[in-house]
């Protein structure tokens, strides 16, 4: 057994153990912390299978932001809002058998793959030059399948509107409450020092994403985290839902995307096509808009809806 194989096996065993522990452990808080650790390990896995872009996304969005989100609800849910009764033993066995069957089939397909692994990598490489970017994943996200990326930002926007739709009626338009009553001094210090650095890092990761691992989703998550830090430290309160500036920040990315996409009808012969030679600047323009919008969306998703009315 080579060293890397040993490391891989150790990683896999730890992750599966952690996953099982997350399902069986009684304490919800512990399970959530386990999930965040799991996210860290998972991002290592992404590096091992040569997907650093995904690794960055996983650590920022999958483990980090999702974990923070889950923590927000932990104390509330432990009270016992059961969705279903504790299942009977035969039902447990049935579900166990079904879930096991799915895992077995999947495992079989993984171990016996098709003789030739189909891939679009050569095709993606062939057209890479015409997109002007060096990172093939950015080319997929912003050129070949840009429509998916556009719709994805709409998905996040609608999820945010869905979260906001849960605002109690009296609180519509108010600010979500993020900061606690008394902010600890260390947190304040952290916010003051880390946030400028974090903003630089977030923008850097977006910028570098054109040619190297990175991109707007990862960068926007860092920006959103910095914003959360500012709000938690009470340096700035969260914007009101009715704030015109917030609304504009939310829609600017999709709007630029649509504007450039629609102008493609005229200038490049197709929706979301880029004119020759202008692909890279246009992609960067869209990414800049998306960075703002996605950061705003993720930040407001993390902040949650306002729960009591204090209209500004």
């Amino acid at each position: 057994m080579t060293e890397t194989a040993f490391f891989d096996t150790l990683l896999v065993v730890t992750m599966i153990g952690l996953a099982i522990w997350m399902i069986v452990v009684r304490d919800v808080f512990a399970a959530i912390i386990g999930f965040m650790a799991f996210g860290l390990l998972l991002s290592l896995v992404w590096l091992r299978i040569e997907a650093p872009d995904v690794g960055l996304t996983e650590i920022a969005v999958g483990g980090g932001a999702t974990g923070v989100m889950l923590l927000r609800a932990r104390g509330l849910a432990s009270a016992g809002d059961a969705m279903n009764a504790v299942p009977s033993v035969p039902f447990r066995v049935l579900v166990g058998v079904l879930a096991g069957a799915v895992a077995l089939f999947l495992g079989a397909l993984v171990v016996f793959p098709p003789a030739v692994a189909p891939t679009l990598a050569p095709l993606a490489a062939e057209h890479l030059a015409s997109t002007g970017v060096g990172n093939p994943i950015t080319a997929v996200l912003m050129a070949y399948r840009a429509f998916d990326t556009f719709l994805e930002t709409v998905v996040v926007l609608l999820a945010l509107i869905g979260v906001w739709s849960l605002t109690p009626d009296g609180a519509w338009g108010a600010r979500p409450r993020v900061a606690s009553a008394d902010v600890p001094a260390p947190l304040l210090l952290l916010a003051q020092w880390l946030v400028p650095l974090g903003i630089v890092i977030g923008i850097y990761i977006t910028w570098v994403g054109a040619d190297e691992p990175g991109g707007k989703f990862q960068g926007a998550t860092i920006l959103a985290a910095m914003w959360m830090l500012v709000m938690m430290a009470g340096l700035r309160s969260a914007p009101a839902l009715s704030s015109r500036r917030l609304r504009i920040a939310l829609v600017v990315g999709p709007a630029i995307f649509i504007a450039i996409g629609v102008s493609g009808f005229h200038f490049a012969g197709a929706f979301l096509a880029y004119p020759d030679g202008l692909a890279k600047p246009l992609i960067l323009a869209i990414e800049a808009g998306l960075l703002i919008s996605i950061a705003a969306m993720l930040g407001m998703l993390l902040a949650g809806p306002p729960l009591e009315g204090d209209r500004p």
């Binding site: 679009l120 070949y144 929706f271």
Partner: peptide
């Protein structure tokens, strides 16, 4: 039929 962005599947949508 519309090929979005002018990209032909399987690469495009």
């Amino acid at each position: 039929i519309y090929l979005v962005g002018g990209w032909r599947p399987p690469l495009g949508l």
